[in-house]
Each structure stands twice: as C-alpha cells, then as structure tokens.
C-alpha cells in the first residue's frame, strides 16, 4: 500500500503523530516481543526502515537482474516444452520483483528511485547473477542450486516482522517451488541423456556450486549486521545456519543426479554435510564489480529502462489528456 500509507496522506492535517518517540519505541518493541507484525503506518525506528528498504530493494533488484541469465536462453531452449517452462519462470521473476518493489513502496521508497539506485550502482543485487549462463545445463543448475539456495533464504522471511515483506515472501515462496523443481527435472533429463549432456550437466554443477553457497552471505563472524537484523525480526537465522541447511538438503539430491560436487572436503559429520572452505576472495571480487557480467547486467537493465522512457511518457501523457477530457 500504500505508497502513501506511511506518512502524510489524504487526511493530512488531521494526522495524529506519535506523542513522542520513546513511547513509540516502547510500542514497537512490544510488538516485536509478541512476534506481531509491523505494518506500514506504524512508527518504526529509522534504522529499521532503512535496513528493510535496502534489503527488500536488493531482493527486488535480484529478481529483475536474475531474469537476464536465464532469459538469454528462452529463444534457444532445446524443446518447446522447456521454452514454455522457462518463459513462465522468467516471467515469474518479473512478478516477484514487482511484489517486492510493491512491499518497498510501503516504506516510502518509490520504484523509480530504487531503479535509479540500481542502475547507478548505489544498491546491490545478488552477486550470483554476475556469473554467466553459458550452456543449457546452466538453466537447470540455476533452478536447482540458485533457486534452491534462494528458497532456503526466503522461507524464514515469510515470518519477517515487517508485514508487507512477509506477505510478498509467502507469495513468492509458493510460486518459487516450481522453479527449483523444473531445474532439477531439467538436470535429471540431462543425467539420463547422452554423454555430451552428462558432461554439460557436471560442468554446470562444477561452476554453480560454490557461487550458490556464497549466496548466503559472509560467515557469521564476518557479518556485523546479522545481530541487529535478528533482533528486529527481519532475519530469523544466521548466514551459516541457512548455508548448512542448504548443503544438507542438496548433497543427497546430487546423488540422484549422479553428479559430483566440486568439494573434496565434503564430509558427513554428526548428520550434517560439512563443506570445505569458501573462496571469499572471489566473493568479494565479484561484489567489487570484478565478476564476468557485472557491467553487462547493469547496462542491460539501464538500456531497457532508458529505451522504455518514451513509452512510459506516452502512456502518462495519454492518461492525463483523457482524464482532463473526462473531467
């Protein structure tokens, strides 16, 4: 909502503002303590709002930028069934981006501003999309590993303390489960296919495994914001907890696909699959813009946005003309 639902609105003037911030803070803390949801018009600490806007926007940007690596394959999908599935999936990602922008707008961040922040590099998107999707098997690996990791990350956000974000997430998680399944099924088909297809499969898993583990973010001891986010109920589990959950889920699935995971240290200890050291230098390099596709992804988004300006302007001009005519 409520683009206007957080501040001065239609009933501006009669708006009753909090008596004082201390009292409001007490009420806010009490809501969190009761595991209640914060809603757009509630008073909230500036840091809470800022953190949410940053996180939701980054999440939305990731969905939109994430359309590109797979979108590249829609026109080349090897069968019409796969083409339809992939088209529907990439369309869902646009949809998910929109749900999330819609949630961010309830905090007073307009989509235009957020788009601007994205294309000028002031807000991030998930680094995973700076890796190139170079073969058809990558489409499957993205579904299985990248969407799989995203789901593990996202499920707890369905219980996020901020209502609109949690609601958007519930919708997204429901829809996303098909994304991971189609990826796995795609890979399973390759695993039962020709030698060439199996090679393609293993190669994609080799390239996407480590980046998908990095999707959970830096290890807990290097993640300074986690504690505050958890206190605010924005985050429910630490990066390492979620990463572990993902690895535990995924290793047995790799067996079914008959692929090896590119980690010689992978070992079952106390019912958990322990992975080897993650190359955080690579992670940080991609964050700094040294990934294969950083520049390309942003340029693509910028071009679509800039090239579309005359179309958006036309529709707005038409609406204004015809509203005036009707008035």
């Amino acid at each position: 909502m409520y683009g206007n639902d957080f501040g001065p609105s239609a009933n501006e003037g009669e708006d009753v503002r909090p008596i004082d911030d201390a009292a409001a803070q007490v009420r806010f803390d009490a809501l969190l303590a009761d595991d209640e949801r914060i809603e757009p018009r509630d008073w909230m600490p500036a840091g809470y709002r800022k953190t949410l806007i940053r996180q939701i926007a980054q999440h939305a940007h990731s969905e939109i930028i994430g359309m590109q690596p797979e979108g590249n394959w829609i026109t080349r999908a090897p069968s019409l069934r796969r083409k339809a599935i992939l088209l529907a999936k990439v369309q869902d990602e646009a949809g998910h981006g929109l749900y999330l922008y819609s949630a961010a707008e309830t905090l007073g961040a307009e989509r235009d501003e957020l788009t601007e922040m994205l294309i000028t590099g002031r807000q991030r998107y998930s680094s995973i999309f700076n890796y190139p999707a170079v073969t058809w098997a990558d489409v499957g690996a993205i579904g299985w590993l990248v969407d799989g990791a995203a789901i593990v990350n996202q499920v707890p956000i369905c219980r996020c303390s901020y209502g609109p974000y949690a609601r958007a997430m519930i919708r997204i998680c429901k829809e996303e489960s098909f994304h991971q399944r189609q990826g796995f099924e795609l890979l399973l088909t390759l695993s039962r296919g020709t030698d060439h297809q199996r090679t393609m499969l293993q190669d994609a898993v080799d390239r996407w495994w480590w980046p998908s583990l990095m999707m959970f973010g830096p290890p807990d001891d290097a993640s300074p914001n986690t504690a505050q986010s958890m206190a605010w109920g924005i985050k429910r589990h630490t990066n390492d907890e979620l990463r572990q959950r993902f690895v535990d889920m995924t290793v047995p699935q790799a067996d079914v696909l008959g692929v090896s995971l590119p980690d010689p240290d992978l070992e079952l200890v106390d019912d958990h699959w322990r992975h080897g050291p993650i190359d955080w230098d690579e992670f940080n390099a991609v964050l700094r813009g040294e990934g294969a596709c950083n520049r390309q992804r942003i340029e693509h988004r910028t071009t679509a946005h800039t090239d579309g300006a005359w179309v958006r302007d036309a529709a707005a001009a038409y609406a204004e003309k015809h509203q005036r005519a009707a008035a």
Binding site: M67, Q68, T75, L87, Q91, A94, Y101, G308, R312
Partner: peptide
C-alpha cells in the same frame, strides 16, 4: 515476442508480453 523478456519499457509490460 519472447525476445522482449527482460527488455520491456516497464516491468509490468514484461509480464504482459510474456503472458
């Protein structure tokens, strides 16, 4: 039409053209 995906003038139009 599918070539438009991720290139439309507005995200809502991406969704519409994909439909």
């Amino acid at each position: 039409l599918a070539e438009w995906v991720a290139n439309a003038p507005e995200l809502e139009e991406d969704v519409a053209l994909a439909n």
